[in-house]
């Protein structure tokens, strides 16, 4: 349980980090919070030749509201996100979701960008940021580009980011932020990897008819599943037991979860339907309540 040898690089600026990635990106790996990556190194499931430690890039440690977006620097610690009054005010679902990530002791070190690029299909942040229609800024020596999260995740632990690239920022559009939100998760023990997790955003009009809804599910496929067609079924309607049932069925119809030690495929699909229903009901309740108080 000791990591293999590696060359250690600690850049002091983004430019230095990009230069290192250009040179060593193919054989090297970026080290951010390391709360998923260092266990992988300790167990020698990965033996990169070099590690580029980006923990000293203070320029990527921020949370700010700018141009209609909530912008989060990639090396912002998860605990900072969880405690931020700005995030709580503007994007409360993120605070709710973050509280499910590991434990206080790992959130103190784990970063927001690290969770996104690690792309665990049951991880809380990729799922929630996908629901929020977030995009990410990716830099390399040659260019700076943006990617929408819906195109970003390819499969288990794999994203479209290239070895020479660095994810620098996550941007959440604030313009049409929903009033109703909910994050539901089931794991064997609190803080364990989610078997299934669901994030939901929802809006209603003054008579309680759904006007918009977004929902994503983690843990039922190789990437978080954004359920757009299924959520369209809710538009213009009020919630009913049968409608929730139909939406749940539709969300999971193409999903292919793994069978593993922790849960069978059937169990995961059933759990997903239960949590989808709970999340929609909770988000709906909050949307109605918020509408009443305005």
């Amino acid at each position: 349980m000791k990591p293999a040898t590696f060359d250690y690089y600690r850049p002091d600026s983004v430019v230095e980090a990009l230069q290192l990635l250009e040179e060593y990106g193919d054989e090297g790996k970026l080290l951010a919070g390391g709360q998923s990556f260092i266990p992988i190194l300790n167990m020698r499931m990965s033996e990169p030749e070099s590690l580029i430690d980006i923990n000293h890039l203070k320029e990527l440690d921020y949370i700010k509201e700018e141009d209609g977006y909530l912008k989060i620097g990639a090396v912002t610690r998860q605990s900072k996100l969880e405690k931020s009054p700005l995030v709580k005010k503007l994007v409360p679902i993120l605070v709710e979701a973050t509280s499910f990530i590991g434990h206080i002791q790992t959130r103190n070190r784990g970063t927001v960008g690290g969770s996104v690029v690690h792309a665990d299909p049951s991880a809380e942040l990729p799922l929630t940021l996908l629901t929020l229609d977030a995009k990410v800024t990716i830099k390399s020596m040659d260019e700076e580009r943006e990617a929408n999260l819906r195109d970003f995740f390819i499969t288990y632990l794999t994203t479209e980011i290239m070895p020479s690239e660095l994810l620098t920022e996550i941007q959440i559009p604030l313009q049409h932020m929903s009033n109703g939100y909910a994050f539901e998760e089931f794991s064997r023990r609190h803080g364990d990897f989610a078997l299934v997790a669901v994030a939901c955003l929802l809006d209603v009009d003054e008579v309680g008819t759904v006007t918009s809804g977004r929902l994503a599910v983690g843990g039922i496929d190789a990437v978080p599943v954004l359920a757009e067609d299924a959520m369209d079924l809710l538009i213009g309607k009020k919630l009913s037991e049968s409608l929730l049932q139909t939406v749940g069925e539709k969300v999971v119809e193409d999903a292919e979860p793994d069978d593993d030690l922790h849960a069978s495929k059937e169990y995961r699909l059933n759990l997903a339907k239960v949590l989808i229903k709970r999340a929609i009901q909770k988000a709906y309740g909050r949307a109605v309540k918020r509408g009443d108080s305005l």
């Binding site: 349980m1 600690r10 260092i38 167990m43 430690d53 923990n55 605990s79 790992t106 103190n108």
Partner: peptide, 27 residues
């Protein structure tokens, strides 16, 4: 456990509780 699950190795680094098995000494 040496992979961040058990919490036995928790220490305070700059005032915050972290797993010391999930950090390198150079960090």
């Amino acid at each position: 456990c040496e992979h961040g699950v058990c919490g036995a190795c928790t220490v305070l680094v700059d005032g915050t509780a972290v797993r010391s098995c999930l950090m390198f000494a150079v960090q």
